[in-house]
Design a protein around this nucleic acid. Structure first.
Lengths: 354, 354
DNA sequence: TTGTAGGCGTTATCAA
DNA sequence: TTGATAACGCCTACAA
């Protein structure tokens, strides 16, 4: 292992002082150096393969040019490709601005100081938290410490800086689409327990659409999912078992929707003939299910970029606040909800007492 | 923003010197301190909420306790959940040993020094590279600099430290399974172009199985995929268009398999009645395709953990070398390849002009 | 236009 | 059992 190259070596090689080297390497505005020395120094730096020691830089500047990314439930990363795509977006924004990304997959912190300690360690300049639960204690602590924290979704904290998508509106649109196709008994499976605020917003959007169409909300037609394909499968089975005869499903995410489609198939229902399904996210495989899934496109990568940029802005002292409805979402119509529903609702007498 | 707490503050609070504080906080072996001072110091540290400044630690120790994770093609992270799950595994291993994970999604480095500079910056103690292409120039540079680099897969470099799974053997088993069901014309779609060594190993495993069963390898039954569902769809269509009448497919990954299944469905082939499909990876949704996918379980999370541990071992100076066949893989049999194939090849007339 | 000197917060060596 | 003191490599007033 060879000794590393420092500004000192460059200075010696170029025959100037360390200060001069620093001035040149950092392109200081006020300082005027002769072009000749500048060239000499740069040449020396290149020749020696100089790369600044980031620890020293961090120590003296007090900034690490690193953004921390917290996944409060790392296992969720394996649900589908939504969070990973978002991460790539965040990373891209960071890269473009010369920041790095430190991944911190904190296992639902028993330690309430988990996030705060990370901040205090000066290892990161800012923090992005993806989809925390409402009231997360560790998160509250960092927020209240004034450390720059950007939340995707919301933790329900009054002082939080957060960005979220128009979940409510998009969900309303999706549901309305089903209604416009003639469906009246539309089930909904939330993508997560309702302590996750976006899940709640989607539920509300769904209810708003029903209300606007003067359709009742049936408690039995709703089930809480838990992110995964399997939970979608289970929730759908549960709903089907209740004899509440939905003819359509608005699923809180695409993966859930796939699980639900499996349950529908097993129940002998054919999609979209007997049953319509709409998903959420438009993950890449959504176009390849049988039939292809109608869904809300949530632009994970772009959202990620936005998050990254906002986090850096926050670090730079800009105000962000709670922006709960940025980013419009599109409804992507595919075959899974068919044309006009033929079976215009039902409902046999047995349905009356849901 | 309050001033941060340093060892100095603790020293003052506890009425001792900074040195003593350091000794206690780092639990130095040789040094004996009175229990009383120790307690006083620890109490002061806790009271003040002390967290060491990692930059200072890094600077003086020369170690960052951080592992860098490089994804040579970040876009691939959005293919499916395999890489993300592996990342979570890596992260878990790091967390367990007090390391952090720095994610570096380098966009196919135009800059051949990209990795090396990261290493030189002292920001990381070691590097994990997931699935590089053979001969990656930037990668070769770090490897040759002796910096600890662990590769998942292989870059084909003689001095590389790498870990890979038994791709060849698993692929052979998968193919043999199809053969044992009576299939003789088995197509294969690689999950990636063959500059990716694991893709090559899977192809070889497939060919080995054919050979062992005295079945010929038909060039037309092979197509190169490019990770995604869509590429699987396209490759399958291409194969079907060639009039080469396969009755089964061994797909290089599950997502590809899903795309292929879509193409098969559109061609009027029913799975598993007319056509058998086997995938690779056993991603969580594989059990929920229609029909559920027979596949190779590749234990992404566990592999990730192993990678993380090996990378840290490498940092600690242990030898790793090129371990190209660690980790046994299982064949998970589901419905997508049915029972014994009824249509014992070849092709009924109706299939002739697909 | 260039150089000097001090400090960022730790750890580590050695002396008391 | 403790405490000075010197690095680690870089940045930045300020002085020359």
């Amino acid at each position: 292992m060879m000794r590393r190259v420092t500004t000192h070596d460059i200075a010696r090689e170029a025959g100037v002082s360390r200060t001069t080297v620093s001035h040149i390497l950092n392109n200081h505005p006020g300082i005027m150096l002769s072009l000749k020395t500048r060239k000499r120094v740069l040449a020396a730096a290149r020749k020696l393969g100089y790369v600044p020691n980031s620890a020293a830089q961090m120590l003296v500047t007090g900034r690490s040019r690193t953004i921390g990314l917290i996944l409060p439930r790392p296992d969720l990363i394996s649900v589908d490709v939504f969070v990973p795509m978002m991460m790539v977006g965040i990373n891209e924004a960071c890269r473009a601005r010369g920041y790095r990304l430190l991944m911190e997959a904190i296992q639902d912190p028993a330690d309430a100081d988990a996030y705060l300690d990370l901040a205090k360690s000066k290892r990161i300049d800012g923090l992005i938290v993806i989809n925390p639960r409402k009231g997360d204690a560790a998160l509250r602590k960092v927020i209240e410490s004034k450390f720059p924290v950007l939340i995707f979704g919301s933790a329900g904290h009054p002082q939080e800086n957060s960005i979220a998508t128009q979940d409510g509106e998009a969900s309303c649109r999706a549901t309305t689409h089903l209604i416009s196709l003639g469906h009246e008994r539309i089930a909904h499976i939330s993508y997560a327990p309702l302590v996750y605020l976006p899940a709640r917003k989607r539920l509300e959007g769904y209810r708003a659409a029903l209300k606007r169409a003067n359709l009742p909300f049936h408690r039995k037609l709703f089930a809480e999912g838990d992110f995964s394909c399997e939970s979608g499968y289970r929730a759908m089975r549960q709903i089907l078992a209740l004899n509440c005869y939905p003819t359509a499903l608005f699923a809180g995410n695409d993966t859930l929707a796939m699980g639900a489609m499996k349950a529908l198939g097993e129940a002998g229902l054919s999609i979209p003939k007997d049953f319509a399904v709409v998903g959420y996210d438009d993950i890449p495989t959504a176009a390849f299910t049988c039939p292809p899934l109608t869904t809300i496109r949530s632009h994970a990568f772009e959202q990620g970029k936005l998050l990254g940029e906002a986090a850096i802005a926050l670090v730079d002292g800009q105000e962000i606040g709670s922006q709960q409805d940025v980013l419009p979402l599109e409804l992507i119509i595919r075959a899974s909800c068919g044309g006009k529903a033929t079976r215009k609702n039902p409902a046999p007498a047995s349905l009356t007492n849901l």
